[in-house]
């Protein structure tokens, strides 16, 4: 029982991708934006939707649906961009993540969180920090640093093998 590194009650922001509910530690989340125009950066994989203007800074946005093998996030009134702070190679960077809708902020006690199952999920279990349980639903708690830095590593590999 319990997940390493989670030993106190934390707040989590929950959001929906398709039918499933995901969560991020609230400490990682800076703000939530409405969907705005995204400028595609050439030569990037489809799930890197592009960059947006966040009050003067240029912030990359990832489509988490595509990243996790689901159909592209459709633009609806509920579509949001979650702005999060992540650490890539020891450097703090601000990134955006597209979500179908943002739900609520939840308190989860360590006892409510279980380790990620080894099988039975479509997404790479490396990206999962743990499974939160409330009432009768499961919430997938994402390790957002990994989701993005994995991307960075993959990109470096692509560059190295390409040359």
């Amino acid at each position: 029982m319990g997940v390493e590194g989670i030993n106190q009650t934390d707040q989590y922001l929950t959001f929906r991708l398709g039918e499933e509910v995901f969560a991020l530690e609230i400490g990682k989340v800076r703000e939530v934006l409405d969907f705005t125009n995204i400028t595609k950066v050439p030569q990037t994989p489809p799930f890197m939707r592009g960059v947006i203007n966040l009050r003067g800074s240029v912030v990359p946005v990832m489509d988490m649906n595509l990243k996790f093998g689901m159909p592209e996030t459709a633009k609806t009134v509920n579509t949001c961009i979650i702005i999060a702070e992540i650490v890539v190679e020891g450097e703090t960077t601000v990134v955006g993540a597209l979500a179908d809708s943002v739900r609520e902020v939840l308190d989860l006690e360590p006892g409510q969180i279980e380790p990620a199952p080894k099988i039975g999920t479509r997404l790479n279990t490396d990206f999962i920090k743990g499974m939160g349980k409330t009432d009768d639903t499961f919430i997938i708690i994402l390790d957002i640093d990994r989701v993005f830095s994995e991307e960075e590593k993959a990109a470096i590999r692509a560059v190295e093998s390409g040359e």
Binding site: V41, P42, Q43, T44, V58, V59, E89, T93, E152, A155
Partner: peptide
């Protein structure tokens, strides 16, 4: 503005 580490390879 720089594009940040995620777009370094572009």
């Amino acid at each position: 503005k720089t594009l940040g580490p995620l777009h370094r390879q572009v």
